[in-house]
Design a protein around this nucleic acid. Structure first.
Length: 428
DNA sequence: TCTGGGGTCCTAGGACCC
DNA sequence: TCTGGGGTCCTAGGACCC
């Protein structure tokens, strides 16, 4: 039988912030989404006060002041850097690792032998705590879905001391445990499914595990039927341990204020294309098409709404920022209408293919293409060294003009990724 | 004049995840 | 006044072909 572990950082963003702000330990802390929009992470203390994930910050503000909740803007460079460190440390614990998100990964421990997995996982926890100062929980089981569930149990039930290995339970103990957990805790069961399942009398994880597979498939989908199988210990989701290339790359942001003009939107689109194209080159891919979208504020019910998008194919696949940008801005021109208050724009790179599989264009000017590729690499190197906006496409504008950029009122410094913002130790 | 069915490809949209 | 940003996979339905 296989053994899969799911390792997950507790309250990841809050824990990262606390590393450099030990004064925040034991205090209610929340981290806000881009634009300081809503809550995306909360400490145990904030959760205990009733702060819900996704709560808009403007609604929470008064309550937060009353209860001395500390709110921070999200600091993704810091979280990404800590994530890289933790993932590389965890990779030493298994030959097979699937990095599933910024704060969690699966490890295949099948080859490790079954006897001492709990101790092995405890070793991981203490090494991560000691080297990086971050708290993690570990769930172990025979499938990914069960490992996610085990992780949930490890977090919720203190008696497991941060590591829950479901394979150590006998059948009746496992049945009893699964009968305590609401079906909504299962990976792949969201709000819609939860409500529909409850109506059918499927309320606990145990109910779902024991539900009729073909019925679930018919009433819901093959996806949920796979989940049922996985809960029974049948592997349907295999471990993807190669960091495979993304199939689409997106870059979008809400603005700090409403935007009305084509010029401002074009400037934003150029910034997003620049960011997306960099990611594209980093995974050595080319894009065959680019989608541009702009949006008005959906929460502003009385204001006129306009949320167009357009997909523009490229004449030939490319990773050239300037080329992609020209196409994107042209696409923007097709959908832009004056007279609306736009609050968000985004671009998506589509039809990605590996650089190596680029079609050969007999009519292309090889010398020109090579120069452009060199230009892109040079640009990436300069931006890598001097900051992401050191040089870019012409329309991107200078930062002082970009007053539409997102609001980040409470951002902590880039403690680990910028020399100028390193934490400083003061001698007593 | 009458008339069919199977297959593929693409797209939009929905559900889910963190 | 102020409500995130990335992703994945699947399905249904239409267009088109033979």
């Amino acid at each position: 039988m296989s053994r899969i572990a799911l390792v997950d950082v507790n309250n990841c963003y809050v824990s990262c912030e606390r590393l450099f702000r030990p004064d925040l330990l034991n205090k209610p802390v929340v981290v806000l989404s881009n634009n300081d929009g809503c809550v995306v992470a909360r400490s145990a203390e904030a959760r205990a006060l009733g702060v819900v994930m996704g709560m808009p910050w403007f609604k929470l503000k008064g309550f937060a002041r009353q209860h001395s909740i500390v709110a921070l803007s999200s600091n993704y460079p810091l979280y990404a850097d800590m994530s890289n460190r933790i993932m590389s440390l965890l990779s030493t614990y298994s030959a097979r690792q699937e990095v599933y998100s910024i704060d969690e990964c699966f490890l295949d421990l099948t080859e490790h032998g079954h006897a001492h997995l709990t101790e092995y996982a405890q070793t991981m926890r203490s090494q991560i705590a000691k080297w990086l100062g971050l708290p993690v929980c570990v769930g172990i089981a025979s499938t990914k879905t069960l490992a996610k569930l085990a992780n949930h149990v490890a977090k919720k039930q203190p008696l497991w001391r941060g590591v829950c290995d479901l394979t150590t339970l006998d059948k009746s103990a496992l049945d009893a445990l699964l009968a305590e957990i609401p079906v909504s805790a299962v990976w792949g069961v969201g709000q819609q499914h939860t409500q529909a399942l409850i109506k059918l009398g499927i309320v606990t994880v145990r109910d779902l595990r024991d539900a009729d597979g073909p019925f679930i498939r018919k009433r819901f989908s093959v996806v949920l039927e796979r989940t049922v199988q996985e809960l029974r210990g049948v592997i349907c989701l295999s471990l993807g341990w190669d960091s495979c290339a993304k199939q689409q790359i997106m870059s979008s942001r809400s603005f700090g204020r409403s935007v009305y003009t084509f010029a401002d939107l074009a400037e934003a689109v150029t910034v997003y294309v620049t960011r997306a194209a960099l990611k594209l080159r980093q995974q050595n891919s080319l894009a065959g098409a680019i989608q541009v979208q702009i949006k008005t504020n959906p929460h502003q019910l009385k204001a006129p709404q306009y949320n167009p998008s357009i997909i523009v194919p490229l004449s030939r696949p490319s990773a050239d920022t300037l080329m992609l940008n020209a196409v994107a801005v042209h696409g923007l021109g097709q959908i832009f209408q004056p007279g609306y208050a736009y609050v968000k724009a985004g671009v998506m790179l589509l039809e990605l293919l590996p650089e190596t599989r680029a079609p050969i264009d007999l009519l292309a000017d090889i010398e020109h293409a090579t120069r452009r590729t060199t230009l892109m690499h040079t640009m990436d190197r300069i931006n890598g060294k001097y900051g992401p906006n050191a040089i870019g496409a012409g329309v991107a504008g200078m930062s002082e003009r970009r007053d539409w950029m997102m609001k980040q009122g409470q951002k902590t410094p880039n403690y680990t990724t910028r020399w100028s913002e390193l934490a400083v130790v003061h001698a007593a």
